[in-house]
Nucleic acid binder design. Structure first.
Lengths: 240, 240
DNA sequence: CCCCCTCGATACATCTGATGTATCTCGGGG
DNA sequence: CCCCGAGATACATCAGATGTATCGAGGGGG
């Protein structure tokens, strides 16, 4: 095991053991390096890796802090997998995403708060105005779309589910735009499907919510494979 | 953006762009550092992070190589999330795992090969011998258990699903042993449940396979919360 | 002719020291 | 009471040197 690995495991272990807690500041480099028995260079390699993994956060001139360890943050580095898989078969990614989002919809139908339901309602109302509007602000629609799905995910009460969904759905942003530009009527259809999901949530009907979400995402997948491949690298997923 | 981040993103980008392919050897540190406009120290911090992420693999005296980029390898760093969540509520982890494994069982019922079905059969036969045997080799049972679940996951044909399942199920090994030692009859029950899953797979019945898998994992979850918490750090999940 | 061993070139691993730069804190001035 | 500037602190980055593992070429033995 390399020194760097020792640093990574050592700090991870200390966090798991409660020596360092979220928000805590780590000892200064020199001190921590000595306590782990490595040079500052090796320590920095390890800390750098932890930083990329979202476990710590270093600020020049200040210090190194343990992050809040939110599952979403820790799962974010998975984005590379999505980018990588997305180049060839995005199908596998979409299958998993659909599975996760459907479960989220089912759970949210039970646990979502009235307040969150209201937030979702406002998002959809705004989307309706944009769709009916003349200048078709796709960028804004995409933002609303992401926010809508996020509201559902966060109200499942399962942080792991949220993190995975964010990781699998977040990076597809560019791809969403792609579909919006190429297919007429896609915005309206997406909006209608969102409305159906909302109604199921408002009715507190898990089965219906899951089915509506599945239908929504399957539509996305189908449009993805039906669409002409007019670019090698742009095999991006469609909007949802 | 720090130099290290530039290195990480730069190399990631080059891999995504096909400049470096799986198995390729990267340029030597000095050369790569110059081409990215950073010092060797900064380069090493970035490469170190990529190594932890499972994207590259460095061998002293030889060189740095791009890994095969298997989804399972890239998803392995998620293990920390499991360790972290597992300390408090392992429920969220288990919920997601059950979701993933059930989908895997459903898909595998359709796509699994006769050969793989035979492999699974052999594993279960061996498990039966061990369970009936006098000296109750729990370690071996755990290995068989892991292998059985892995056969199912790998034959879904969805690498993303495999990676996630490995990440969520792999780290629970220590916990499995815990249940095996504390609950009498757990080995037999686990074996019976595995048999039921196998029959559903052999019958090529996705619905049945999914239900059997769900039932199996729910049993694990229940035993987890019913079991006495005789340790703070040992809130490990049960065997499956 | 083939196999095994040795040795040198190569490349990563690690340490040390020095310098740059951002941040925080504390005290002085308005 | 607020604003601001200097010093202390801590991370960021670089450069150089030495340690160590690996690979391949070439020589010796069977």
């Amino acid at each position: 095991m390399s020194r760097t690995d020792e640093v990574v495991d050592g700090i991870k272990r200390m966090i798991l053991d409660g020596v360092f807690r979220p928000g805590d500041r780590l000892p200064v480099e020199k001190e921590l390096a000595e306590s782990l028995g490595v040079s500052r260079g090796s320590l920095r390699e390890g800390v750098s890796a932890l930083s990329i993994l979202g476990i710590v956060n270093t600020r020049q001139g200040d210090g190194t802090y343990v992050t809040n360890l939110d599952t979403t943050r820790l799962l974010a580095p998975m984005g590379f997998v999505v980018d990588l898989q997305g180049q060839g078969d995005a199908r596998h990614i979409h299958t998993v995403r659909r599975l996760l989002e459907c479960e989220a919809a089912r759970q949210a139908a039970v646990t979502i708060t009235e307040e969150a339901l209201g937030q979702a309602r406002e998002l959809l109302d705004e989307a309706a105005r944009v769709v009916r509007g003349a200048r078709q602000d796709h960028e804004r629609l995409i933002e609303i779309d992401i926010a809508f799905h996020r509201v559902i995910a966060t109200h499942t009460g399962n942080p792991v589910l949220v993190g995975l969904i964010e990781a699998f759905a977040g990076r597809t942003v560019r791809g969403r735009l792609w579909r919006s530009l190429h297919e007429t009527g896609a915005d309206q259809r997406t909006h209608d499907e969102h409305e159906a999901i909302w109604r199921a949530l408002a009715a507190r009907d898990p089965e219906r919510a899951g089915i509506r979400m599945a239908s929504h995402l399957i539509g996305v997948e189908e449009s993805l494979y039906a669409a002409p491949e007019d670019g090698e690298r742009i095999s991006g997923p469609g909007a949802d």
